[in-house]
Design a protein around this nucleic acid. Sequence first.
DNA 1: AATCGGTACTTTACCGGTTCACAAACGGCT
DNA 2: AGCCGTTTGTGAACCGGTAAAGTACCGATT
Lengths: 336, 336
Amino acid sequence: MTINDVAARAGVSKGAVSIAFNNRPGVSPTTRERIFEAAIELGWSPNQAARNLSGRRTGIVGLAICRPARLLGLEPFYMEFISGIEDVLAERSCSLLLRLVRDLEEETVLLEGWWRSRTIGGAILVDFHRDDPRVPPLRALGIPAVAVGHPSLTGGFPSVWTDDASAAAEAVRYLAALGHRRIARVGGPSGLGHSGIRAAAFEATMAELGLDGGRQVPTGFVGEEGARATRSLLMSPDRPTAIVYDNDIMAVAGAAVAAEMGLGVPDDVSLLAWDDSQLCRLTHPPMSAMSHDVHRFGEAVARTLFGVIEGTHEGDFQVPTPSLTPRGSTGPPRRA
Amino acid sequence: MTINDVAARAGVSKGAVSIAFNNRPGVSPTTRERIFEAAIELGWSPNQAARNLSGRRTGIVGLAICRPARLLGLEPFYMEFISGIEDVLAERSCSLLLRLVRDLEEETVLLEGWWRSRTIGGAILVDFHRDDPRVPPLRALGIPAVAVGHPSLTGGFPSVWTDDASAAAEAVRYLAALGHRRIARVGGPSGLGHSGIRAAAFEATMAELGLDGGRQVPTGFVGEEGARATRSLLMSPDRPTAIVYDNDIMAVAGAAVAAEMGLGVPDDVSLLAWDDSQLCRLTHPPMSAMSHDVHRFGEAVARTLFGVIEGTHEGDFQVPTPSLTPRGSTGPPRRA
DNA sequence: AATCGGTACTTTACCGGTTCACAAACGGCT
DNA sequence: AGCCGTTTGTGAACCGGTAAAGTACCGATT
């Protein structure tokens, strides 16, 4: 079933069919109608590979994620993020081409290939590092892309970002206002851009408030590492009375550790999550969190990407700052 | 950068380059070497679209998921499943084309389009219903696909499945052996094939053991509905002493409800999850579960799909039955 | 009547590979 | 030397679309 069959059936040339199927002026409404009928009768739709070959852009958006596959299943963040992207993509009958990669080098090569072979019409870049090695080659390629991360990290790619620094500061101020003086943070990998930003803001705010000894533990984002970090923090002689986590799965794991150690939440230790997925509302006590509509974040990213592809968008887009959502897991520390 | 540039640089015809890059006999080792060198120097790699056009398979696998986008973020199952698929796909440099759809009709149309336009080389079908409406049109199309679900549901598509009936029976027997007589089940939507199978097996096993009053509550798989179902079960006059859930997020939500109602787990009520994600190990007490390596399940599905695409595979493939993993959330009921 | 502008198509040259029929070169054998 | 079967490589015809140039026709203008 090819364009020629349809053309023959409709009694026109294949050029006419092409024109009709791309909604371009050049055929009369009557003929257009006849062409569509023929296509439907034959069950034909244009071959994507052939289209791509003659230089059209596709409705496929590429996303490569550089984290171990097994870890991803756990992280509510990504699936929620993806589902937000999907929502916008589906509106325009576009799809998401997903690939897990081992390192940024592999990601770069992959995106180059996808772009050169016109498999994708644009890409979403996530998890920026300082001086991210993906930036130069991908910019040189001219691939339309949206970067998820603070504009200072994304090397000129239009970015969609959220003000992690303010949020981290707010988290610390809130806990300090409750009376906490020993506040710890269980963060993501130190190389990761946004973890770094949060870490710096955390430290700065602690200093500003005259609180010292704000320990920070970097982890790989997995629940088990969050549990381990929590255990080690809570076993230390000067144990913190409040802990801020870099995602919610680690916070939930932390809550289980507290329970296992016989510590009350929030009486003995307050816990504050980040990336408030529904998980936070399912624990007991429910988890306070730096709440952040990840789904909407994904939507914003997808929308911005369409803007970039169509050339209507330039510059960065800031989504709302994660806002403190106090629930049961934070409270004043018990009097010594 | 095209095959012609490489051919010119290596001083051969483009046919020779094609032969070399497809590892086919027809050029001497020396020439082959020269061609590769030229390609590397020029940074060339074959254009995928052009390759596909000349009758090759595309290396893109389609997956449409028919659940509300927001729900998906929560469900550890899907992301873990996808990550398993990705692992196998990545081995062969293939990618996953993902799309969330509203209903099965939309999914059918989508897959038809993808297949007709050669966007995908095969598809993965999930969430089978009884007399699933996707089956006839997709079979007629001849699209290579693997179905995830019991062979009785998948209408002739090669299926990858797990023995839900035995697992459900085992769950009931285990709880009965602990001494439970009032066992309830919080299941998925009743229309969904595997939920139906588990429901039937649950009921049959209860009857077989002479236990009646095994209440079952259908839900939409979300944590909140799991919480609501649990609350209503635990408030009933003859409240169950054990509850089996159809996934783990609902079980975790159930645990929070028990805590909130002041009921001890497992003393007052035993909870048993399904689809054992790491979530189960992060609660306190850790959640007993019908454990099931979802990641490996995804791998099996992807591998089977490749078999189907290449024509080497026929028939169904059974992955290991979910096995009971007792942890802290199940125990003998407290004496009345 | 000749010219013009516009619409409605058709024709044809690509896009960047694969494939296959065919030719040249090569080595072994009589 | 002459013949033959292999290996090695070439050239052209595809694959199924898009795009731009070209043609035919029509009503309006000069």
